[in-house]
Amino acid sequence: MGQADLRFGSSSGVAVAKSKAATEEEAVADIAEQLPSDDTALVLVFLSPHYDPHRFIAETAARFADTLVCGCTTAGELAPDGWDENSVVALAFSRQDFSVAHRPILNLQNFRVEDGRRIGAELRQELRANSDVDGGNPFGLVLIDGLCRREEAVMSALYASLDDIPVVGGSAGDGLRFEKTFVFFDGEAHTNAALLILLNTSLPFRVFKCDNFEPRTQKMVVTEADIENRTVKELNAEPAAQEYSRVVGIMDAKLDPFSFASHPVLVRVGGSYYARSIQRVEPDGSLHFFCAIDEGMVLTAATSRSLVGATRDMFAETENQIGDVSLYIGFECLFRRLDAEQHQLARDMSELYRRHRVVGFQTYGEQFGSMHVNQTFTGVAIGRRPA
């Protein structure tokens, strides 16, 4: 059985629950017991692939029949008691503090930019027309199939239509299997789909992005690539895996998820650097990326700052801006966890998240504004209602 971390109260509009029950039915019952039974605008669930997603979401939607239920599968859970696996985490948003509008995006392989812009504009207008929150401000959450390879197109189109509403989110995960990920809405688990949720709230909030990498001088140019499949065949006119290993300095190491987690590459966009993570080495020595790539793209080798220190600084900066934070809704790259494990920092990071009340999931990619990024921690901090 889990333990409820937050209830709707005088200062916080979000309640949180966690379960590690053995079956889907038991986990749903456990979550329902912990969350408020009424006055709920949205239940958001993040589900380990340890559970059957179809059975879980059908049971959850039936249990919360009068409430919007959304969510996705994970590559790990950010639970009230720290990092976890093989669990389900749920958040309930109160009607007093949040008005919610949502819209699914289906058939992502045929996604068109004009469709995304239309969906974003319509949903923005719907939220404005139907919001019951006085004097609120909106933010958006995006959940998307983590294996669809369409995140950049979706985020660019949606963000352009949202009139500067801040948006964050995560790409659904499947542990370390990379086989199939699911997004939940309308009582079903969907692949090849995304979900845009807009929330209007009178509570203070701040969206955030945190990473711990800085650029080095070494560069790699993508000289041959399969753009559609996010696969780089050559870097600097050399076989991709071989040249990557040479430039980042891991010539003697086997390339595996831990190697990629410790040695991401960066892309410069608009004067800022964003991490691009490599998912795997293909049998022919090419590199398969989590983010979109293109021929001619310049990749910069990265050096690491303290993972714990950079994250702690982000928490401090957020609390300086909006005051006491009731919780952080977080979307964290799976490779940040692997990097922490590689450097024996997992316990420190988990405890840091527990102390700061971080709830969310570990992802196959993170969304921030119009960007799809990797090896990053994004999300929204929710402050407390003024006394």
Score class of each variant (00 low, 15 high):
A172L: 03
A41N: 04
A92T: 12
G76W: 00
I165Q: 01
L266G: 04
G116E: 11
S262C: 13
R55E: 09
D164T: 13
I293Q: 08
T217E: 06
C70R: 10
V183I: 10
G173P: 06
S11R: 15
F205Q: 08
L91W: 14
A22I: 14
S161Q: 11
D324R: 15
R280A: 14
N107C: 14
V358W: 12
M220Y: 03
A21Q: 14
V265A: 01
D324I: 15
L345P: 05
G296C: 09
M349I: 15
I293L: 03
F64G: 03
N137W: 02
Y328H: 10
V142Y: 02
A62Y: 13
D115G: 09
K18C: 08
S370F: 06
A32R: 02
E228H: 14
A302M: 07
A32V: 10
A316C: 11
R354A: 13
K18F: 07
R336C: 00
G135I: 01
S87L: 06
V69S: 05
R124F: 08
L158F: 00
L199I: 07
V325C: 05
R230Q: 13
L147R: 07
L35A: 03
L123M: 05
R7C: 08
L255F: 11
G187T: 02
A27C: 11
H102E: 11
M1R: 12
P138N: 04
T311A: 00
R55Y: 06
V221T: 14
S94H: 06
F335R: 01
N236Y: 13
A17C: 03
D163R: 12
T40P: 08
E188F: 04
V142T: 10
G82V: 07
T23P: 05
L235A: 08
G2R: 07
F182K: 05
V43K: 07
E332R: 06
F184R: 07
Q125A: 09
D132I: 13
E188I: 05
E59N: 06
E319H: 13
R337I: 00
L78A: 06
S161L: 12
R177D: 14
L176W: 08
S171C: 14
G146S: 03
F258R: 10
A21D: 09
R336P: 00
S131N: 12
G271I: 06
Y364I: 00
V267N: 05
C210A: 14
E26T: 07
S156W: 05
D145F: 04
I329Q: 09
G146T: 04
R103M: 14
T23A: 11
D38N: 11
W83G: 00
D81V: 10
C333W: 09
G71V: 04
R177K: 15
A157C: 03
S99R: 01
A32E: 10
G379D: 03
S48I: 03
L199M: 12
A316K: 14
E122W: 01
F208D: 04
I197C: 01
F331H: 09
D5P: 09
A240V: 10
H102V: 08
N374E: 03
K254R: 13
M251G: 15
